[in-house]
Design a protein around this nucleic acid. Structure first.
Length: 919
RNA sequence: GGGCGCUUAGCUCAGCCGGUUCAGAGCGCCUGCCUUACAAGCAGGAGGUCGGGGGUUCGAAUCCCUCAGCGCCCACCA
């Protein structure tokens, strides 16, 4: 120890250099040889790759801190712990950002710039800002293997994407076709079902009247369809309802349920579609719910998925009425053409009203799908797209969770995952974007050929006709089509190299439930499909970081917290500790963005406490040689045996919590052991020994135990607060003869050490603690100054306890300023304060000048009352026949012991009190 | 329409496969301390009929039912 440590931890001073050192020394790098040659057991986490253009926010802070905890812990356990970092090209999101910038800077659109130049611009942008978030992760201590940083558009990963596309196509699981997809008119692309988020909104449900043709009306009346109405001009009509009235311009039919008795006669007849001059047929289809509304539904095959299915079954025409920008096209009557969908809606409603064909409108709350990237209302649209057939992929993924091959933490997500897989729908993977993996499909344009080629390598000519007139599909793939391969594409799959052999399958996935379907489930599917194994065994889903009001943190609300600012002001350890301590099982984390001090002070205080315990340890130990624990084993004192015992259970408890993904539990146990047992008690207990007041040997033993325990404590705390622990650990003197681990980062994780468990020592220290706290409490009660020594008389202490307390006299003096402890009668020692300890020992504090007899009497009375209530409770139980006969014997036994103890304590206090009153 | 989560101290949350003098932690509050590790601290305290109601049980914060409030997810009811 050369440099003196200041009383306050300055994180800024230590964190950067320590991180840099770890990185320079290659501590975060894990080569495959560690597994393949040295036979170390791997432990692998792949990072949920953040959007390449993202900046670090608190959600990342939490997510990556948790991952780092697991990685550091496993690394210390000797595993070949590998954390693969990287970023996602995030197709739509990134393209949007660049498009916006382009608009701001030059007013151009991507079409003005052209595809190639635009993509080039995105690359430039991504290279400029890209990966900034990864640098930011270093500030919170993320010990990723930076040599393995990947990007989902890297050549290697593109290779994987292409291989997967081709393989799935070969298996018949990729197909192209015209279906209704979710279309974002702003982004100009198709979306998957998952990318269209239903947002509850207030809308209107409109009821429209469709007149029957005269032929139909005739037949209808004959069949007695009583829900028909009659217009003023005598025409009969039926009523349909919709929340999107503009789509009626694209209606090609009206459907009823085949078994609906009301409409049996209508099927096959026609109605006049208002505003269009077209007539459309009435068809029967099972999908229609006779209970809903009139039991008749308008059918717009090109703009509604159900209607599309009906049309396929019934042979209705499909009429697209919208442009890609969601404006009405030339398929609609002249006067409605060229309107955006919302204007078209108004116009149609107005026109219908005018013609008396609007039966009414009413407020209607329903889910409106919106683009998850730009929030624009998504339009269901008939479109030619590429899809992945998901059922066959879903089956192994489903079996995996059912068999326990993959496990969710918390477990309740299992059901959510399984239900999604059970109802899985095909995945629309083509996007009409420019930024992403180009679809590896080429079309031959040669006259009369029409060959479609799905290729691993870019072809130069048509495989069928040899023509060079081939064209690649202009679309790119959904971002998630590369993300789902992440757990093996980062290891160079499809190449079967060492990395893949060493590190696949991985172990733990740490992410937020929001992307359970987008990403987690799909990774599992890809894992089975392409590797035959799941990508990880355990899926830890943590909560969302929210503000004090429980709102999600977002840019638009301005309620975010910048982790870098937190690191700056409080330190990375403080940030980590704070979020980890709040990382309850599946609960969200609330942080007040307006009061960072309040939010992060607990973390800062904890790190500072560690710092100061370290200072004390270093100062206590000094420069002299320290003996190894084994060398002092025969001379351990009770406090030593106690703290070693506690250390053992803390190690076991923390390990268990981590294994069970109970992060906050681990933090809690670490906190309790370090702050409560070690700092509050052990350090205080050994102060007199450290000062040499109890002989050289006692000092040597205390120093040895102190160094040992502090070393292990730092190891236990390291995954949580890596910086302060490492800084201190570097300065701990090492016991003579022991081999010092190279770094705390790789120091072996403490075992539970059952041999150190010492019930007797724990019992004794518990007694000592009770004596100390009770004495302190009485002193405080009667205003005995903290400087003043006090005498204590113990009545009824058994011989061994007397001996113990005599031995511990220096400790008692240190902890409660107890000047002397006497044993024996408390009679005749004048006025004082009394308490009964758990073991039935009477504690008497002679305080002649200070104790007010009346007050003492009241205090005792209260105590007696409390004990009587407890006694009463115990007796009530014990006198209950049922309890005694049905409760387990040990529980009854415990209750009896409690009763006896309460009774004993109560009696002693009573006696004391009556004497007090009498004397 | 289904499914899930939450409701415990003034605030944020633990505890919840029933039984440790089970009601806990941090923050806040009150009292006393700048005691040579730490005032970002130490010591002592106040504060909750565990959302309401019902049930199961010898025994319920913990299990079941129900109601209320808050939040989330899924779903093609036009």
């Amino acid at each position: 120890m050369s440099d003196a440590l200041s009383p306050r931890l300055d994180p800024a001073e230590i964190e950067g250099p320590l991180y840099a050192r770890g990185r320079e020394e290659g501590r975060f790098h894990t080569p495959a040889s560690l597994v393949l040659e040295e036979g170390r057991e791997p432990y692998v986490i792949v990072i949920p790759p953040p959007n390449v253009t993202a900046v670090l926010h608190m959600g990342h802070g939490l997510n990556n801190t948790v991952q780092d905890v697991f990685i550091r812990w496993r690394r210390m356990q000797g595993r070949a712990a590998l954390w693969v970092p990287g970023t996602d090209h995030a197709g739509i999101a990134t393209q949007n950002v660049v498009e916006r910038r382009l608009a701001d800077e030059t007013g151009e659109t991507r079409f003005d710039v052209g595809r190639e130049a635009f993509v080039q611009k995105v690359w430039e942008f991504v290279e400029g800002t890209g990966g900034a978030i990864l640098d930011q992760l270093q500030a919170i201590g993320a010990s990723c293997d930076w040599e393995r940083t990947r990007f989902t558009l890297d050549p290697g990963l593109s290779q994987a994407v292409r291989e997967v596309f081709v393989r799935l196509h070969e298996r018949g699981l990729i197909y192209r076709g015209e279906y209704i997809i979710n279309w974002c008119p702003r982004c100009g692309t198709a979306l998957s079902n998952e990318e269209a988020e239903g947002v509850e909104s207030d809308g209107e449900l409109h009821h429209l009247r469709y007149p029957l043709t005269s032929v139909a009306a005739e037949a209808a009346r004959a069949s007695g369809a009583e829900t028909l109405g009659q217009l003023e001009d005598g025409r009969w009509y039926l009523t349909v309802s919709t929340t999107r009235p503009e789509t009626m311009l694209g209606d090609t039919g009206v459907a009823v349920h085949p078994d609906d008795p009301r409409y049996q006669g209508l099927v096959g007849l026609e109605v006049e579609l208002p505003l269009t001059g077209r007539t459309i047929p009435i068809v029967a289809d099972d999908w229609v719910d006779p209970e809903f509304g009139t039991g008749m539904v308008k059918v717009t095959p090109a703009h509604d998925p159900n209607d599309f299915e009906i049309a396929k079954r019934t042979g209705l025409e499909v009429l697209n009425i919208l442009t890609p920008e969601a404006s009405t096209n030339e398929a609609v009557p002249q006067r409605f053409r060229g309107l955006n969908r919302f204007d078209a809606r108004k116009a149609v409603v107005a026109a219908l009203r005018e013609e008396g064909l609007l039966a009414g409108s009413e407020p209607h709350r329903h889910g409106v799908p919106r683009c998850y990237r730009c929030d624009t209302v998504v339009e269901p649209r008939l479109s030619d797209q590429w899809f992945v057939k998901m059922k066959p992929l879903a089956e192994p993924a489903l079996a995996a969770s059912r068999s326990g091959e993959i496990r969710f933490h918390p477990d309740r997500w299992t059901k959510v995952y399984e239900e999604w897989l059970e109802n899985i729908r095909d995945w629309c993977i083509s996007r009409q974007l420019w930024w992403g993996h180009r679809i590896p499909v080429w079309y031959c344009r040669a006259e009369g050929c029409g060959e479609v080629m799905v290729e691993r390598e870019d072809p130069t000519k048509c495989r069928a006709c040899g023509s060079a007139e081939i064209e690649q599909d202009p679309d790119v793939l959904d971002t998630w089509f590369s993300s789902w391969l992440w757990p093996f594409s980062v290891f160079d799959w499809p190449e079967e190299g060492d990395d893949l052999r060493a590190f696949y399958p991985g172990h733990t996935l740490v992410t937020a439930p929001e992307i359970l379907f987008f990403w987690v489930a799909r990774m599992v599917m890809a894992g089975y499909e392409f590797r035959g194994k799941p990508p990880f065994r355990d899926i830890f889903l943590h909560g969302t970081v929210r503000d004090a009001q429980g709102r999600k943190m977002s840019k638009s609300l301005g309620n975010g917290i910048d982790p870098l600012e937190v690191v700056d002001r409080f330190g990375a350890d403080a940030l980590r500790y704070t979020v980890l301590s709040m990382c309850g099982v599946g609960t969200d984390i609330h942080l007040d963005h307006e009061d960072l001090e309040a939010a992060f002070a607990p973390g800062r205080n904890f790190a500072n406490k560690v710092w100061n315990a370290g200072r004390f340890t270093l100062m206590s130990v000094g420069e002299d040689e320290v003996e190894p624990l084994d060398a002092v084993a025969d001379d351990l004192e009770v406090a030593d045996r106690w703290i070693l015992s506690r250390l053992g259970s803390a190690s076991a408890g923390i390990t268990d919590s981590l294994e069970r993904f109970r992060i906050h539990d681990a933090v809690d146990r670490a906190h309790h052991f370090f702050w409560g047992d070690f700092a509050d008690w052990y350090l205080e207990l050994i102060k007199s020994r450290i000062r040499g007041e109890e002989g050289e040997r006692s000092r040597a033993v205390a120093r040895a135990v102190l160094v040992h325990v502090f070393d292990r404590t730092l190891r236990l705390l390291h995954p949580l607060v890596p910086f302060v622990t490492e800084h201190l650990w570097d300065r701990i003197p090492w016991p003579r003869g022991g081999e010092r681990p190279e770094r705390l980062l790789v120091a072996p994780w403490p075992s539970s050490d059952p041999e150190r468990a010492d019930g007797a020592a724990e019992e004794r220290i518990a007694r000592l603690q009770e004596l100390v706290t009770t004495t302190r409490s009485l002193r405080k009660e009667y205003g005995v100054g903290e400087g003043a020594e006090v005498e204590v008389v113990l009545k009824g202490a058994e011989a061994s306890m007397q001996e113990f307390f005599r031995d511990e006299a220096p400790r008692l003096a240190q902890l409660a300023r107890i000047g002397s402890v006497e044993f024996g009668e408390t009679e005749g020692r004048g006025v004082g304060a009394t308490a009964i300890l758990t073991a039935g020992v009477e504690l008497f504090l002679p305080l002649a000048d200070l104790v007010d007899l009346e007050r003492e009497g009241e205090r005792l009375a209260e105590e007696i009352e409390r004990l009587e209530a407890q006694l009463e409770g115990a007796r009530r139980k014990l006198s209950n026949e049922q309890f005694v006969s049905k409760a387990p014997a040990e529980v009854v036994e415990k209750e009896r012991a409690k009763e006896a103890s309460f009774l004993d304590q109560r009696n002693k206090l009573r006696e004391k009190r009556s004497r007090l009153a009498g004397g």
